[in-house]
Design a protein around this nucleic acid. Structure first.
Lengths: 155, 155
DNA sequence: CTCGATCCTAAGCGACCGCTTAGTTTTCCA
DNA sequence: TGGAAAACTAAGCGGTCGCTTAGGATCGAG
């Protein structure tokens, strides 16, 4: 699409970025929610989340880069809208880790920082992943799934 | 310093970025090497690396953002120069993890991907860390140190 | 087959960016 | 405290960017 045609659909470039970022955030959130919904056992939920969240950041690395690294280019109001979605995801993972810890299946000092670390691992994949590299998205996701479980002190 | 004064010292903006990025990369590499030099036991080396590498990315988060997120703005030759330093760091950590695995102290399927994950955790701190947040660089570094040890399956 | 939606190219406007030059002030140490 | 080093402001040049407008091609549903 030519640059001129873009402005038929979006009033400003910032609005285009916002809609793109919003749609991307909804995508990841859905990935996360569907992974969490596959079980009610924290261990299985975290396995699925770590795997799918990581795989998404590899497979959709261009969208992921917009989602994770372009927030500074949004207006303050739009940043706040999107920050809300991000908080929901953080809390979802934190609560799952906290539930696992309460059940004696996980062992963490600080569930919030553990949740941050698990998501962080997946996010950073979007920074270094290149198509056609030695590792496939699935290979990375499977390994990161195991690393994430160890992170939270799962036996 | 005013924009005009910059060009007394650097011929182009790209050259300025290169010198900045190079100096930043040498800083992190020194942080990593000094941490590794504090012991000859892989466990202690990895503890020190995870802690100091993470702390650096929090304390020097502005420099870290240049180092980690501005490489695309460098010329191809400069990218290659700096990529060399980055490979050295990756390999250093991978070799430490591999040594620990060989000694039966770590348990990893893929030492390369484990090394990547450990560094990834530290790097991503530069993305989300804000001064004056709830967590201090030292608090984050201490927790990430423990998370990194678990990552590599250290008992 | 036609009509309306949606794409395109081309041209242009004002603002900002990368960089330079010239002249002036500040700094700091021998 | 004098003088070189290094900072500053101000002005300007050419190029790109954000965005708009006008007019023409394309495409798909009815």
């Amino acid at each position: 699409m030519s640059a001129a045609s873009v402005y038929v659909h979006y009033p400003t470039k910032e609005e285009l970025l916002y809609q793109l970022s919003l749609s991307g955030h909804r995508d990841v959130q859905m990935v996360l929610e569907q992974a969490a919904a596959r079980s009610e056992v924290p261990e299985e939920q975290l396995r699925a989340i770590a795997h799918d969240y990581t795989a998404w950041h590899a497979r959709c690395h261009t969208m992921a880069q917009v989602v994770q690294y372009e927030m500074a280019a949004l207006s303050p109001q739009h940043v706040e809208q999107i920050a809300q979605i991000r908080r929901e995801m953080q809390h979802r993972v934190r609560d799952i880790i906290a539930a696992g810890a309460e059940a004696g299946r996980f062992h963490v000092e600080d569930a919030s920082i553990a949740a941050l670390a698990v998501l962080s691992l997946g996010i950073d994949v979007a920074r270094w992943y290149r198509e056609g590299g030695t590792w496939t998205p699935e290979y990375i996701a499977e390994h990161y799934r195991e690393l994430a479980l160890r992170l939270v002190g799962s036996a």
